[in-house]
Every structure is written in C-alpha cells, then in structure tokens.
C-alpha cells in the first residue's frame, strides 16, 4: 500500500458506486415491434480511494466501458447511486453537472480517432479550459499548456503542430495532457494503451504512474489486458456479462482467484516465457458470453461454469466477502 493508514477510520472514498444498473434499449423488431430493453450493468458496487487505481477488467460486452461512462455521468443510471467526494451525483443536472465534470476526466482508447485533426496541439489542450470558462483565449493559458506538455513528455515545440505530426504514443500523451488541463482528481482511462505498440505502451504506463504519484490522481483503469492491469492497479475488479464477479487487492486476486471465471480468465493469458507458458495449466471453457437481451436466469456464468448446480441456474449470487477486501459472487466457491 502506498499510504499506510493509521488506526483511525479509513479516509472516505473519492468515488463510491452502489448497486448501479444501466439499461439500454435496442431497436424495435419490425415496424410494430416494441423496443426491447436489456440490462448492460446490474448491481455494480465499488469504492475508489484517493490516489488509488482500480483496474476494471472484462471481455467485450462485459460492461466495463459502460461502467466508466455511467460513473462520469455520460449515460444515465437506471438504478443505484454514484457518490463522488461525498455527494450523491446520480441525478446532478445542468450547471452543477458541468462543474462536477471539471473534476472527472476521460482518457480515450484510440489516439487516432479522439483528437480533432484540424486543431493544433495547443488548441486541443486548451479546449477544456475554454469550455469551462476558465480562460477566454488560448494565449492566456500558453504557459500552463507549456507546463502540461512538459509534464506529459512532449517536445517543447509541439504547441503549433497538428495531431498527424505525432506518433500513436505521443498522441496518447496529448490526450492525457487534455485530461489533466482542468486538474481533475479522478480520471477514467478507457483502454488507454491497447492501441499502442509494446515499447510505446510502457512509456504511457510509466507516465500514468508518475502522474498519479505526483498529482495524487485516482484512476479507474479499464482494460482487457490482464498483464497491464496487474502492473498498474492497486485493486482489480472482474466483470462478466454486466455483473461484477470478483473484486480484490491486486496480488490477492492474481495469486488467489476464487471465482471460476476469474480463474479461467487468468489461465488464458499467455506469459512471455516459453518454459513457464508450456507448463501452465490452461482452463478453457467452451461457449461464449450470453446474450444480454435474454440473459440466463441466475448466475450469468452458469451456462459455461463446470461447477454450476441447480441453485446457480435459478438464483444470482451476490458479492460476499471471503477475506479482507476480497469479494466474490459465487455459490460454490
């Protein structure tokens, strides 16, 4: 742990998500058809503490991006509560929501698609400041932007160039500078390094860790790459088909996974070492993630789980604490 907490009540979490549901509507089937709704997220709860990174892992369709968006209030929760800095922000609107967004920023996955190709770097980084009315003209923030660019490791002459002049890694640095411009405390990073090459990925991961240490940022780090998540996170949560199946301290989760899905997921990640990799036991479950429009009753993993019993098919297990801070949703483990 970074900050050993004295024997006082622990610091309140920066962000607390309680029983979050998100429902999406699909298009109507046919002209007279009724639109169907499906629950993309069901009963998601977690806390994020100041200066902490929570890794959010899952396969496509598991709801990890939806969680990030819901927390940032980009999409509306259909049930549950989001508490940020002690205030319930689930239904915050208008000016209050705009103010709130200064404090929570997003870093996107694709540095090629997320930067406007017609804007200079200085305009890109100044845009959040302009939008929030903190400056009236880009020139007012020139020094601040120079400093931001230096912090994220971009060359000093980057100001007046356009995104196309930069490589993928450098563009991701521009995206990070943009997110930092408003000095937020909380950043949702949605697959920030998955579009980058291996050697460049390390540069960006290192940068994010340095920034966290220096600025005390909290990250919700959304990724499908379990190796990167282990490297950067303090705690890790695993999502499957819209539900959280396990959450624990990083090493606890990786060394002692409890949920059968977590176990299978970890065993599927190849390790870059031939001797180790050939000896690793892979747990391969057939089948695929269930269709969320008609989800299985009970545990969503029950259709693939070797341990599934009658109960699993009928009733969904809730997260329960197995050891300090290690929560699992499973009837049989």
């Amino acid at each position: 742990m970074l900050n050993p907490v004295p024997a006082q009540p622990p610091a309140p979490p920066l962000l607390s998500v309680q029983g979050l549901d998100v429902t999406y509507e699909t298009g109507a089937q046919g002209f007279w058809g009724r639109p169907k709704a499906f629950k993309a997220l069901e009963d998601i709860s977690f806390d994020l503490h100041p200066g902490e990174t929570l890794g959010l892992v899952g396969e496509s369709g598991s709801g990890k991006t939806t969680t990030g968006r819901a927390v940032l209030r980009r999409i509306t929760a259909s049930a549950g509560k989001i508490v940020f800095q002690g205030k319930d922000i689930t239904h915050t609107k208008g000016e209050a929501l705009r103010k709130l967004r200064r404090n929570m920023q997003l870093v996107f996955q694709d540095p090629y698609a997320s930067l406007n190709p017609r804007m200079r770097v200085i305009d890109l980084v100044a845009e959040p400041l302009l939008v929030h009315g903190l400056i009236r003209h880009v020139d007012e923030a020139r020094d601040r932007i120079t400093e931001l660019l230096r912090i994220v490791g971009l060359p000093a002459d980057a100001h007046d160039r356009f995104p196309h002049a930069f490589s993928g890694g450098q563009r991701q640095r521009i995206g990070i500078a943009r997110a930092l411009a408003l000095q937020p405390e909380f950043i949702v990073a949605d697959e920030p390094v998955s579009a980058l090459d291996v050697s460049v990925r390390a540069q960006v991961v290192n940068l994010m860790q340095d920034l966290q240490r220096e600025l005390g940022l909290s990250y919700l780090f959304i990724a499908h790459d379990l190796s990167v998540v282990r490297h950067i996170s303090h705690r890790v949560a695993i999502l499957y088909a819209g539900r959280m199946v396990e959450i624990a301290d990083r090493d606890d989760l990786y060394d002692h996974p409890i949920h059968p899905y977590t176990e299978a997921l970890l065993s599927a990640v190849p390790v870059p070492d031939p001797r180790t990799q050939r000896q690793r036991k892979r747990i391969v479950y057939g089948g695929e993630i269930p269709d969320l429009v008609n989800p299985p009753a009970g545990c969503r993993f029950s259709t693939r789980c070797p341990l599934a019993t009658e109960q699993c098919h009928k009733e969904a297990p809730k997260l329960s604490e197995r050891s300090a801070g290690h929560l699992v949703a499973c009837w049989n483990r």
Partner: peptide, 18 residues
C-alpha cells in the same frame, strides 16, 4: 517493457523514441 501476469514489477523498461 512487457508486463507479465505472473510477476509484479514496479516499473517497466521504456524504449524511448519511435
């Protein structure tokens, strides 16, 4: 510079430049 699932590292080697 590749993080490993089976190891905890504090910091990755980063190959600067492109």
């Amino acid at each position: 510079s590749t993080p490993r699932l089976d190891e905890v590292s504090d910091r990755l080697v980063s190959i600067e430049g492109t």
